[in-house]
Structure formats: C-alpha cells, structure tokens
Design a protein around this nucleic acid. Structure first.
Lengths: 286, 286
DNA sequence: GGCATCGATACCTCCCGGGTATCGACGCAC
DNA sequence: GTGCGTCGATACCCGGGAGGTATCGATGCC
C-alpha cells in the first residue's frame, strides 16, 4: 500500500464525497475514483458504499480510516524527525507542545529547571488548541507534550506524572455562587443560562450540546465573562485568572493529572534530560 | 514520502550495500541508487555516506531507519487490520502472540476463561521466537500479546499486569548445584563451561558473548541438557520442564512480570473481552 | 418529467519507475 | 605503479500507470 493511496482514501473517508475530496487533494475526481477502486481491489475489501447520491464507510473502511491516519502520521513523523536530525545544532533542540493556558506555572518551572541543567538544548514551546497535542506528538511536529488526564488520552505514549490537582468552577465575577466556599458538580452543570462550553473532540469536530463552541481558553474566558458559559478547570488556572472571573472549588470533580508524554522509542539525550528535569520538579513540589 | 521510497531506504540501510539491497528488493541497482538520491534531495538531507567501497549511515539516516521501520509497520498494520475487519466472522476473531514455551499455564487458563465468556470469538494463538512479539503487534499480524518484563519492551502498547514471579536457574540434571536449595545470580553466571545462551535482540541479531546462540526455548533446553549452557528463567517454566533438567530458585534474579499488551486505539469488543478475562484471572490467582 | 448532482467509464497524454550498458572511483594484489 | 575487480553513479531507452478531459448512467428533487 502506498501513502498516496492512503492519503486519497483518508480524504474521501473524511469528506464522504469524491468531488470535494479530489478538490482538497488538488486532483480531478476521476483519478481519485480509480485510485480508491484500485485500493479496494488490491486489499480485496469494500471500503465505501456508494450510491450516486451518498458515500458511506463500510466497517472495514472505518478501520482503514483510523489505522491509515496513524500510518500517515508515522510516515510524516519519520520525515520530520529525519530532517530535524540533519539540522543538528541549528534548529530547536526540542519542541514541547501543550494546551495554551494550561499548566503555565509548571511549564515555566520546567523550562527553568531544564535550562539550568548542563548540556541543555533550546526548547521551542508550541501552544496549541484543545486536543491537538496528541496529533503533533504522533506526526513528529513535537517531541514532548504536557497532557492532562483524563481530558487528553495518553495511550501509545510513554509518560511520567508531574502533578495532581483538583478542579474549580470558573464563573463571572459577581455570580451568586461565587460567595460559596465550594460547590458540587451538580451545582455547576445545572446552572440556568451558563452551560459548559463544548470543546472539539479528537477528530476536531464539536460534539452536540447546548453550550457555545470554544476552541481555546481565551475564547472560553471571554464567553464566561460575557455570562454565556461556565467552566470547570484545574485549580492551577487560578494564578492567571482574569479579574472579571471568579473560581470556586468543585469538591466532586475528577482530579486532573498533568503528565509529560513522549513517543515511545524516541529517547534522545535531550529528551531524557527534559524528562529528568520534569520528574525532578515533582521532588521539590510534592 | 512514499512507502516505496521508505522500503528502499530501509533495505539499503540494513544491507549497507546497494547491490545486495537491490537484489533483496527484486530490482536492479541503478533505479535503487536513483530512488535514494531522490529521497535525499526531497528531504534535503544526506542519509548515507558512500565511497565506491563502503556505505555508512549518517546520523539522520539512522533516525530515518528507526522511524521508517515504525512507519512501514504502521502501514502494514493498516492493511492487515482492514482485511481482517472485512473478513468478519469467517477469520480468526483475535490473534494472540507469545513466546513459545513461556507462560503456558497462564495462557491455557486465559483461553479457557475467555472461551467461557458470552460472545467469545475464536482466538488464534501464534507462538513465535524471542523478541518477535512486539513486531507482530506493531505490524498488525497479532492483536494482543503476552509479554514478559523486563525482557520484552512494552513501550507504545497498552498493558495490564497479569502475574509476577521469581526466576530459577535451569541446569542439567545431576549438576552439582542442583543439590542447593537456592542460588544467587553470581553462582550461575560464573559457572565454568555453562555460559548463558545468547538471545537475538530486538533487531534479530545476536549480541556478542561466550554463550551459544539460541533462537527458541527448545534449542535452549537442548543446549542445557547437552551441558553446553545454563539459563535463568521464570519459575513457571518448572511445570513443563524436561526430565533431564533441574531448576533451582535464584534469589536475587529480577522478578518477571507477565503482562497482556495490545496496540493503543484498538479496543475492539473482542479484545476488550479478552483483556477482561485476563484481568479476571488475576483475581482468582493473586 | 426535466434537471442538477455525483460517481464511474472511456480515452488520451506524459511522467516516472525500471531496465541495460557504461563510466569513474577506489581497494587490492603483485 | 599498474592492471583488475568491485561498487555506486550516470546515460539512455521503454512501458505502465497516474492524471487530465469528456461523457455516461443513476438518483434525488422540484
């Protein structure tokens, strides 16, 4: 199987429309149809059910979509890491990715601690939107990530736990509940007119629901300040909270574990140092 | 990057010889040279240092060899799993791989427990040589594996621990040490004329050393019976030990943990059932 | 029933992957 | 040092296949 065929199939499987997929791929529709047919013949498997009006995935097609994405990510990662290896000292030594607005304190302490180590290399910090870290780690754009269980999935990565913290409800300043010493999940989820915002899932799509869509923490804070939403976040976000927002501990919210994660089989000297610096932080701040 | 280019590069990087690599790939040498040159141009990276007498990997080339193998495995896995998904009920429902001769008891109990579960599917058991399980799991030939830490690496897989056991020294029956109630590592490693056999590493090559090469447990048992080697193995192997061999506990040998491992993002209904059956065993046999 | 949409088919072109022949560089034997 | 053998690169040719345009057949919609 060639990566070209995989790319073509993934495009069609995502669009469920040969014309749009062809446009996205920058080719005409007939070659795309032929390529998919050829792939199906070669695998001996029906991947798509098509009528002249609709295209749907077969069960096998759904498997190839998931596995094919992972395979394409692995190929991308091979290219990127090879290029990076050739750059040697000129490029960034390590690329660390994390959600914008999360674990800011921990991150700055980590960077300080690592920079103080002998032999430390330059660390590029990439702040990305929700759910994009795993992808960047898998396809080689990043070497290491700070993830937050249980929100982010860590399957397939090597990890070390860095911190565990409770969660707080974020409310507009002056909201009646801000007077309370603590809340329960039920108090927050049932707030009239203040639904929890919806985050994009691992596939980049927003789930259905009543809340407004939020792609990053800035959007979300703005929505809360406007009185259109509430949120439940790790308590470390309090240190940088806007003045027009208030935080109240939520006793029965699940604890959030911050972990440092990296792809297996990729322990470069620099990465090992950064992980060591990270686990060293845990000793100082138990 | 196309998988064809990756396959070509991996072949050359493994052979370090364009002629032999071309032969292995079933093509002539000149197109192979061109393909590698084109790959290097496209990546903008020197992958190989060649003189007219020797070929060596650059640092970037070594990275691409490692990452490229993983990527090719992922592509293979995508194809295989897709075909398997299309087979539906006709093929094996699950393929379980483990080292021949290890954890036999645990395995049969696991298979019995799973078969007794409602909705259980057929399980193909693949017994392979040392160090081949990880590869089979990564490239989709197997769905799930029994691995033994610390001998097998489990990085990149999801795992559940099934059992922890000590290790015993395996000696020819009648050897003076078989009279002892227990031994220490130093007693066994220092045996004159009975070196530990050498196992193939993750790359399939045998490490250097004094001991004889052994590819599977049968070879190894034979070598021990012949008085050419000794071995240190998990104590569960005693249940099926040949009559001409003896086992003596080694107190300070590292404990061996048997785990059930599966690729991340692959929890089919059947796999989940098998994992549940496996963890259920742990309850019964703590 | 006319029409628009969409995937498949027919047919053409041209690029590129693969082949053979050969060159140039290097190691080695004597 | 000279001739020879080995090995990767280059030159050149051929054929298959990837990609393009034009069009067909099926289907949902007004």
């Amino acid at each position: 199987m060639e990566t070209r065929e995989l790319r073509y199939f993934v495009a069609v499987a995502e669009e469920l429309h040969f014309g749009r997929a062809a446009q996205r791929l920058g080719i005409a529709q007939p070659p795309l149809s032929r390529a998919i047919l050829q792939l199906e013949r070669r695998l001996g498997v029906a991947l798509l059910e098509r009528t002249s009006r609709t295209v749907t995935l077969t069960e096998a097609g759904a498997v190839l979509l998931r596995e094919g994405r992972a395979a394409l990510d692995a190929v991308d990662a091979a290219g990127r890491r090879t290029r990076r290896a050739a750059l040697g000292g000129t490029g960034p030594g390590l690329v660390l990715v994390t959600k914008a607005g999360a674990s800011g304190d921990l991150l700055s302490r980590l960077l300080d601690a690592y920079a103080a180590m002998p032999g430390a290399v330059a660390v590029d910090v990439v702040l990305c939107g929700i759910g994009e870290q795993e992808r960047q780690l898998r396809d080689g754009r990043a070497d290491v990530a700070l993830l937050h269980r249980p929100f982010d999935s860590v399957t397939g990565f090597d990890t070390e736990e860095l911190s565990v913290e409770g969660q707080v409800a974020i409310l507009p300043a002056g909201h009646p509940l801000t007077g309370r010493a603590h809340l329960r999940m039920a108090d927050v989820t049932a707030l009239p007119g203040l639904p929890l915002p919806r985050w994009p899932g691992p596939d980049g799509a927003y789930p259905d629901g009543p809340g407004p869509e939020a792609h990053d923490s800035t959007q979300m804070y703005q929505l809360i300040a406007l009185g259109r939403a509430a949120a439940i976040l790790p308590e470390s976000c309090r240190t940088h909270l806007r003045r027009d927002l208030a935080a109240v501990p939520v006793l029965d919210a699940p604890a959030v574990t911050t972990v440092i994660a990296w792809p297996p089989h990729s322990r470069s000297r620099a990465l090992a140092g950064l992980v060591r610096a990270a686990t060293g932080l845990v000793q100082h701040v138990p």
